[in-house]
Design a protein around this nucleic acid. Structure first.
Lengths: 219, 219
DNA sequence: CATGCCCCCATGTGATCACAAATCGTCGCG
DNA sequence: CGCGACGATTTGTGATCACATGGGGGCATG
C-alpha cells in the first residue's frame, strides 16, 4: 500500500513491529482488553496502518510470552485463564517478587521510598475514580520501581511476563471486586523497606501479590 | 520458489515455522551451538528449505524467549551471557526448580523414581563418551520428567525458558570442566524423593542446579 | 420455532520482491 | 606498514499476493 516508503523511514529508531508490539503489550498488561477477545492480523495492521507482516511478528512475540493465545488454526485471542492457571501464576508471583524485593532492599534509599510513596498516592486517586486500567498500571509501576533496584533484569523480565499473562484476567477480577485493602499492603511494604526488615518485606510482598488474586479463586 | 505448494500441504499438522522453531529450540537447549554464533534468516531458510517468512517467525519467537539475541540492527546471534547474567539465571533455577520438585513430591510414585533412575544411568553413559550435547539433553530430561509431575505447566515453562537461555553457555561450561559429581546430586534427589523428604529434596535440587553453574563463576 | 448442515468469506500461512542499512573486505593514503 | 574511507554484498524489514482452511451465518428441514 505504501511501497514508496518501505522500511525504517519515519522510524524513531524503532522498527514498525516493535511499535506495534509495545502498544499491544501495554494494553494487555494494563488490562485494557477483556479475556477471550479475538484479534486479527489484518485488523491490527489496519489499526496501526501497517501490513500484516509487522502485525504478525508482534502477535507471535506476544504469544511466545503467553500474552496471547493461539488456537490450533492460528487464530489469536486474549488469554482466558482457568482458575488453576491463575493460581499457578499467582504462585509464580509469590515466588519471584519477594526475591526481587529482597534483592532491592539493600539498595533502597530514602529517595526510592519517597518515589514509591508518590506512586502509591496515585494508586489512591485512580481507585477513587474507578479507573481499572489506571489502577493496574500504577500498581504495577509501584512494583516495577521497587524491583528495578534489584539489578536482576532476567528475574524482572520473568515477573513482567507473569503480569502480562494476567493482564486481561486482572481487569475482569478488579472490575468485579473492591480493592480498598491493596493500599494497606503497599504501606506494609514501605514500612518494611524503611526498617530494613527483609523477612517482613518478603512477607509483605507475598501477601500483596497473593491477596488480590486469591479473591478470584473464591468465586 | 515453490508457489505451487503454498501452505500446510505436507504438514504433519504443524506449521512450517513451528517445525523450524522446534528444531532450533532443541539445538539451542541441548547446547549444540556455541555462544555468540551468528544466524541469518536466509541461511535458516535455506537449511530448512523454506522462505524467510517462517524462518523469521521462528527466530523472533526464540528471541522473545531469550534463546537468541537480536542486535540493534536486527542481526541474530546465540546469546553470549555475562557472568552476572549466568548467576542470575542460576538463581532463577534455584528458585523455580525446588518449588517444582516439592510440588511433584506428593505425586512421585515408585514408577517415576524408576524412570528417573533409568534416565540417570543414561547420563552416566553419555558422560563416559564425552558427549556434551547428549549429557545436557539427558540431564534436562531427568529434571523435566520430575517436574512434569508437579502439574504446573506455567512454572515448568519458565524453568525451560531458563534452560533455553543457558543452552549455549552450558555447552561452553561443560566442555571445559569435568562433571563427574553431577550423578551424586541426582542420587541425592532420588533418595529424598523415595524418602518423601521435602526439605531434603528442595536442598538436593537446589544444590544440583547451583553446583554446575557455580563452576563458571570461579573462572 | 428449534436444529443441523452447508457454503462463503474472513483469516492465517508462506513465498517473493524492493529497499535501506549495516557489515566486511579492499584499496589508497599517510 | 598501519589506518581510514569507500564500495559491493549480505542481511533484515515491510508490502503484497495466492492459497487452503475453518468458523459463522443463513437456509432448509423436521
Amino acid at each position: 500500500m505504501t511501497p514508496a516508503v518501505p522500511p525504517a523511514a519515519s522510524d524513531g529508531q524503532v522498527a514498525t513491529h516493535e511499535r506495534v508490539y509495545r502498544t499491544l503489550r501495554g494494553r494487555l498488561m494494563a488490562g485494557e482488553m477483556e479475556p477471550g477477545v479475538a484479534l486479527t492480523l489484518r485488523g491490527i495492521g489496519k489499526e496501526f496502518d501497517v501490513s500484516m507482516t509487522p502485525a504478525r511478528e508482534a502477535v507471535r512475540r506476544l504469544a511466545a510470552e503467553g500474552a496471547l493465545t493461539l488456537s490450533s488454526s492460528g487464530r489469536v485471542t486474549t488469554p482466558d485463564l482457568t482458575p488453576e492457571r491463575i493460581e499457578e501464576l499467582a504462585a509464580l508471583r509469590a515466588l519471584l517478587e519477594p526475591e526481587l524485593a529482597a534483592r532491592a532492599l539493600p539498595r533502597a534509599h530514602m529517595a526510592l521510598i519517597e518515589r514509591l510513596r508518590t506512586i502509591n498516592s496515585r494508586v489512591a486517586e485512580v481507585v477513587a475514580k474507578h479507573d481499572v486500567t489506571g489502577y493496574i498500571r500504577s500498581n504495577l509501576e509501584f512494583h516495577r520501581t521497587l524491583y528495578l533496584r534489584a539489578q536482576a533484569p532476567a528475574m524482572l523480565a520473568m515477573a513482567e511476563t507473569v503480569w502480562l499473562q494476567l493482564g486481561p484476567t486482572m481487569r475482569a477480577l478488579y472490575m468485579a471486586r473492591d480493592r480498598s485493602d491493596l493500599q494497606k499492603h503497599h504501606r506494609a511494604i514501605l514500612a518494611a523497606l524503611a526498617a530494613g526488615d527483609e523477612p517482613g518485606l518478603r512477607l509483605a510482598v507475598r501477601t500483596d501479590v497473593t491477596q488480590g488474586l486469591r479473591m478470584l479463586v473464591g468465586l
